[in-house]
Each structure stands twice: as C-alpha cells, then as structure tokens.
C-alpha cells in the first residue's frame, strides 16, 4: 500500500479533468447553448479517438522509419472482432481477446 507523489498528482489532476468534462456541460446546458460547429466536431471524437487507441496497440512505432504491425495483437484482434460482431457484447470481446492471446502465447506465436 503506497502512493508516490506523481501518482497522487495524477489521480487528483485526472480526477479534476474528468469531473469537469462530465459535470460542467450540465451547468452550461441549464444556462446557454453550445455552438453548432462544436457539437459537430465533438460528434466525431468517439470514433476517432477509439480508432487511434486501437492503432496504438496494432502498430509498432519505429522512430524515423515507417511503422510495422504488432503481429500478436493483430492476430488476437481477429477473433475478438468476430466475437463483437456475433454477440455485440463488450464483455465477450474482452474475454475472447484474452483467450486468443493466451493461445498465441502458449504456441509462442507473434
């Protein structure tokens, strides 16, 4: 049970950033309206940020050169995606993904 100063500041700072993102819109909506362009811009944030986060796991950065594929993650992503299409359940995607990665590691693939 311990916490470094960096960890404490991270928790407090990120906690503040998160609660402001969540709660402030409720205060604003009660008093004023957001400009249409901003709502339009924000409507693309979920799909763009989640795609970029997936890419972060699927590509390996080689500074100064083109990126390469993270073979193990790309292979495990295939059954995970199929599980998502079949069940539409986040839990199943995570469970199947973990199992697929365990199988890949067992056979030392990737």
């Amino acid at each position: 049970m311990s916490m470094s100063l960096t960890e404490l500041w991270t928790i407090l700072g990120c906690g503040l950033v998160t609660i402001l993102s969540r709660a402030l819109p409720f205060a604003f909506v009660k008093s004023l309206t957001m400009p249409a362009w901003l709502i339009n811009f924000l409507s693309f944030v979920p799909i763009t940020i989640m795609t970029a986060l997936c890419c972060q796991s699927l590509f390996i950065a080689n500074p100064g050169h083109l990126a390469t594929l993270n073979i193990a993650n790309c292979l495990a992503a295939i059954p995970a995606t199929i599980a998502g299409v079949l069940t539409k359940s986040l839990l199943m995607v995570v469970v199947v993904g973990i199992m697929a990665m365990a199988v890949l590691r067992y056979f030392s693939i990737g």
Binding site: A76, A80, I98, A102, R105
Partner: peptide, 22 residues
C-alpha cells in the same frame, strides 16, 4: 502475460469502437 490479460485493453477498445460503429 501468459494468460493474455495484457490484451484486455486492446480488446476493450476494439469492442468499444465496434459498438460505436454500429
């Protein structure tokens, strides 16, 4: 890592991006 738990994060984002997409 042997049990593939480190892949949970990637799998979660794949699931979230797919659910968002549909």
């Amino acid at each position: 890592e042997r049990f593939g738990f480190d892949f949970a994060l990637t799998a979660m984002f794949i699931g979230l991006v797919y659910l968002q997409l549909i």
